[in-house]
């Protein structure tokens, strides 16, 4: 896989894949997509990086420790946002009822907790996918 064509094309195409992934995550409440789909696209760009440049180079860009922290942070943010609803006296994971500002429908910064939860899901799915992939191909590591 250390082909020069693969490396050049990957270097060109990875920023666009990541930009599209972030677009899908941050527009999860406006257009088709959301945390799971966008997180998978971001992870796909990192997987392409591993395939083109090798696991060692990828570990320098996204250390395993950072991926695990992002992973845990995604779940913690989700639960904390849910507990905000309990703290203000509404139900767990409440949105409008828990006092999150809904904003103008159609703007990016709208829909209260949905945007925060979507971003948390997106980062969590991305870090899960890349950690899974890295550990599964670790056995075949060659220089």
């Amino acid at each position: 896989m250390r082909n020069i064509i693969v490396r050049v094309i990957a270097r060109v195409i990875i920023p666009f894949i990541q930009l599209y992934g972030f677009y899908v995550v941050f527009h999860g409440h406006l257009s088709p997509g959301g945390g799971f789909a966008g997180g998978t696209i971001i992870a796909a760009s990192l997987i392409l990086y591993v395939l083109a440049f090798g696991l060692v180079a990828e570990e320098k860009r996204v250390p395993e420790r950072i991926a695990q922290i992002i992973e845990s942070l995604g779940a913690i943010v989700y639960v904390v946002i849910g507990l905000v609803g309990v703290l203000v006296g509404a139900q767990f994971l409440g949105n409008k009822i828990a006092g999150f500002p809904l904003g103008v429908p159609g703007r990016i910064l709208s829909s209260g907790s949905i945007l925060i939860l979507t971003i948390a899901i997106g980062f969590k799915v991305a870090s899960t996918m890349i950690t899974l992939f890295n550990h599964l191909i670790e056995d075949e590591k060659e220089g």
């Binding site: 409440h29 809904l102 949905i114």
Partner: peptide, 17 residues
């Protein structure tokens, strides 16, 4: 209810969060 234009998002992260 949710301020989200995407009804699927509204369901999976609000009604069925």
């Amino acid at each position: 209810d949710t301020g989200a234009l995407n009804a699927v998002s509204a369901i999976i992260t609000d009604y069925r969060a």
